[in-house]
């Protein structure tokens, strides 16, 4: 889906940065930072899914938390429905908070083990102040359980009596309780078995069709993100290196890192797999504390030239909203 210039983004992130200060070493004057997210920009259109991929530590979760204002970004703007919420006082964010919800990898940690499914959902529903009477609340619980395809009888159970897939459905039901407009899903299926993963991925897609919710879908599994997302952003060491339509991630990746990432993912298309081009990266991802100068990927990039060491490439549109940050295209 190409971005039309007419459509209004529900979310617009501009030059977002999140630096975590490190403890100063004794006697050292300079303060060091983990540049977890470093000057990234992207837009998410209403009702679409924006996928954020990249390897461990590249800044995906931090980006998600900044969007939800679970973190106060160091710099940059986060426009939600046209209003910058990056810097406004936490108090004035309260009314929007319910419209923005988060789904975790395994909701187990955030589910109170002493609460039944029913009371977990009830609590989320009540916080929205839309449903008051017992009957309304019960109906809403049932509706939510239906939405995520859980048997209504499960209401009496406790989280530890449920399978991983069922718990994730409960996590989704809870996030949906306040009819959110934007859901940030952080690795929502990575803890699940493949056969269960597929069930939950299909559920996400169906819910979006029914409810029109916008997703920011964070994951390291490229195949999953390609499947679920309309647009995909690829992160490396706190930077966005490429943003494109999901159709392009396999057919037309342009950044050298994206290409390497794609080629690293094996496929079950047997005959394609046997003749795919493979790019094996040398070395490891550098530390975000001493990120390389210029393009963060240059020490591992086979195309790197002199300028790559010195200057961070611009994030430029190479056509139809396909954005790439690379000096050598």
């Amino acid at each position: 889906m190409a971005v039309s210039s007419l459509s209004k983004p529900i979310l617009k992130v501009e030059n977002l940065a999140m630096y975590f200060p490190l403890k100063k070493k004794l006697g050292s004057r300079e303060r060091k930072y983990v540049k977890a997210v470093d000057d990234i920009s992207f837009e998410v259109q209403e009702g679409e899914t924006f996928g954020l991929v990249g390897e461990s530590g590249c800044g995906k979760t931090t980006t998600g938390k900044c969007i939800l204002r679970a973190l106060d970004p160091t710099d940059g703007k986060v426009y939600y429905k046209g209003r910058d919420i990056a810097k406004i006082p936490i108090k004035s964010i309260k009314p929007i908070r319910r419209e923005l919800q988060l789904i975790f990898q395994d909701p187990y940690g955030s589910l109170d083990p002493r609460q039944s499914v029913y009371s977990i959902l009830k609590e989320a529903i009540v916080s929205d102040h839309k449903f008051h009477t017992r009957k309304e609340i019960n109906n809403r619980v049932e509706e939510l359980l239906n939405l995520v395809e859980l048997d209504p009888d499960i209401g009496y159970r406790y989280p530890h009596e449920m399978s991983g897939g069922q718990r994730q459905r409960l996590g989704i039901a809870r996030a949906l309780a306040c009819s959110p407009h934007l859901l940030v899903c952080d690795e929502p299926v990575s803890a699940l078995d493949v056969s269960i993963q597929a069930q939950i991925i299909n559920l996400f897609k169906e819910l979006q069709k029914k409810l029109g919710t916008t997703y920011v879908y964070i994951a390291h599994d490229l195949a999953v993100v390609r499947h679920i997302a309309n647009r995909i952003g690829v992160m490396y060491l706190g930077k966005l290196v490429e943003v494109m339509d999901s159709e392009d991630i396999y057919d037309n990746p342009r950044h050298p890192y994206t290409k390497a990432l794609i080629s690293a993912v094996p496929t079950t298309d047997y005959y394609i797999e046997k003749k795919r081009e493979r790019i094996i990266l040398k070395g490891e991802v550098p530390s975000p504390i001493n990120a390389p100068s210029g393009c963060p990927f240059h020490p591992r990039c086979v195309y790197a030239t002199g300028i790559c060491k010195k200057e961070m490439p611009n994030f430029k549109d190479i056509g139809k909203g396909h954005m790439v940050a690379c000096h050598n295209l």
């Binding site: 493949v194 993963q197 597929a198 069930q199 195949a223 390609r226 298309d269 797999e273």
Partner: peptide
């Protein structure tokens, strides 16, 4: 067969819908 149709692929045409295995082990 169920496992194979459950996993999304990085290659080939984008699948509209995955075909999961119902239930759990």
């Amino acid at each position: 067969a169920g496992l194979l149709s459950s996993v999304p692929k990085i290659t080939g045409e984008k699948q509209e819908k995955l075909k999961p295995i119902e239930g759990f082990p």
